[in-house]
Design a binder for these strands. Sequence first.
DNA 1: ATCGCCTTATT
DNA 2: ATAAGGCGA
Length: 472
Amino acid sequence: MSKLSIHWFRKDLRLADNPSLHFAAQNGPITPIFILDTVNNTQKEFNLGEASSWWLHYSLNSLNESLGDRINCFSGDPLKIIEQLISAYEIESFSWNRCYSPWEIERDTKIKSFLKENDIEVKTFNASLLWEPWEILKDDNTPYKVFSPFYRKGCLKKHAGPREVVAKNDYSFSDKLASSIDIDSLKLLPKHHWKDKLNKHWKIGEKSAMEKYIHFRDNGLTGYKEGRNFPAQENVSVLSPHLHFGEISPHQIWFDNKSAFPEKDVAHFHSELGWREFSYYLIYHFPFMCTENLNKRFDKFPWSENQDFLSAWQKGKTGYPIVDAGMRQLWETGYMHNRVRMIVASFLVKNLLIDWRVGMEWFNDCLCDADLANNTASWQWTAGSGADAAPYFRIFNPILQGKKFDPDGEYTKHFVPELKNLPSKFLFAPWEADDSVFEEAGINYGEDYPKPIVSIEESRDIALKAYDQIKG
DNA sequence: ATCGCCTTATT
DNA sequence: ATAAGGCGA
C-alpha cells in the first residue's frame, strides 16, 4: 500500500478553495479524515450545541457525497486517533486548515509537534480567515481593540490583502481505512424532535452554500446597507452557518466580482465579513474572553439568577413582542436575524440583568451558526464588557426597536401569531391597548400572550444603577 | 499628550 | 440635542 496523504477536515467542509486539500493532492490520492473531538471541548462553553451538531451531521453527509463516499470518520481524542493512524500506516504527509478557538489552537499545537517528533511532514493552512489574527497589529505591536481602525487601517490599508482563492482540482480519494466508522456512528443527531423543525429551513453543504451566496448577491445585496436592519426583508445573506463550518470561505465571497452592485452596499457587506474577522481576532489575542469579561470591572457586576426570567426569555414569553419573536425564530429555525439578536441580547443583559454567559450558552445550543468567536465577541459587546462596546447606557428599547425596524409588524406577527390581529399601533406595546381592542382582535391578553415580565423603565434604571456600582 | 472618533440609541 | 469613556494616531 502506498503512503497516505492525510487531510484532516475540520471547519472546512468543502472541496473548493481548500488549501490543505490542494496540498495533500500533490502526492496522489488524498485520505480524508474527520474526527469528532469528544475530549478537548467538554467545557460547556465550547461544546457542540444541538443545532450545530444537527447541522454538522448533514454537512458531513454532503461532503462525503462529494468525496465519493470516501470519508473516514473517527470519534474520541484526536491525538490518540492520530497516534493510531501513524502506527498503522505509512504517512507521506499530514495537513489541515487552521482553527482559531483557544482550545483548538492548544490541541492542534500538541498534535503538530507530536507529528514532527515522528518525522511526519505536517502542514497547516488558512482556509477560513481573510486576515490571520497575528498579522494585524497597531504600530506599537499590540492588538486593536476597536473595530474601525482594525478593519480600515489594519486590514484594508496596511495588509497586503487576503490570499487568493485556491483553484479546485479534480481530487481523487483513497479507499476507506479499516478502522474508520461511518457518519451515523458519530451520533450527531439529537434524539428529540426539535430537529425535525429545522429540516425545512435549511439546505446544507457546499453546493447549497454557494447557491445561497449567489441568491443573496443577486437579490439582497442591493439595498443591503439599510435593508439588513429590517428582519422582514431579505437583505441578509444568512450565510453564517455555512461560513462557520467552512462550506464556503470568506475568500470565495470577498473576491467574487460584485461590480454590478452599489458600492456602498458591497462595502458594507464586506465590512460585515470584517466583523467576523474581528471576533476571531479578539479571541485569538484575548483567549480568556471566551469565558470571562474582557473588561475586568464587570467581574463585580451584580447579575441576577432569576430562573423564571431566563425561562420566559428562552421560550419567547417576555411580553415584549419583538423580543419574543426573535426568541421564537431561534427556536423554530435555529437562526435569528442580526438586528433581533442585538435586541434580545440587550434585553437579557440590561433588562433582566442576567449574565451574558447564560445567554451565550442558550445561543450556542440553539443556533445553527453557533460560533465561539462570534458568540463571545457579540455577547460581550452587548453586555458592555467587551471590545469596542457601546456605552452602557445605550440600552435597546424593545418598543422603539420594534416600531423602527419592523414597522409593519410582519416579522413579529409571523413568529408571534397570537398577536396577528392586534392593530399595528399596539403591536410593540400591547399593554397600551384597552379591553375593547383585545376583544375585537380575539385576544385574551395575559392568557394567549403574556403581560410584560418586567417594566422597561424600571429595569433600565436598575441596570444603570448596577453599572454605576462597578465603575472605577 | 491631546484630540478626534466611535455599527448598530434614546429622548 | 444628548449621553461616557477609552482607543488610536
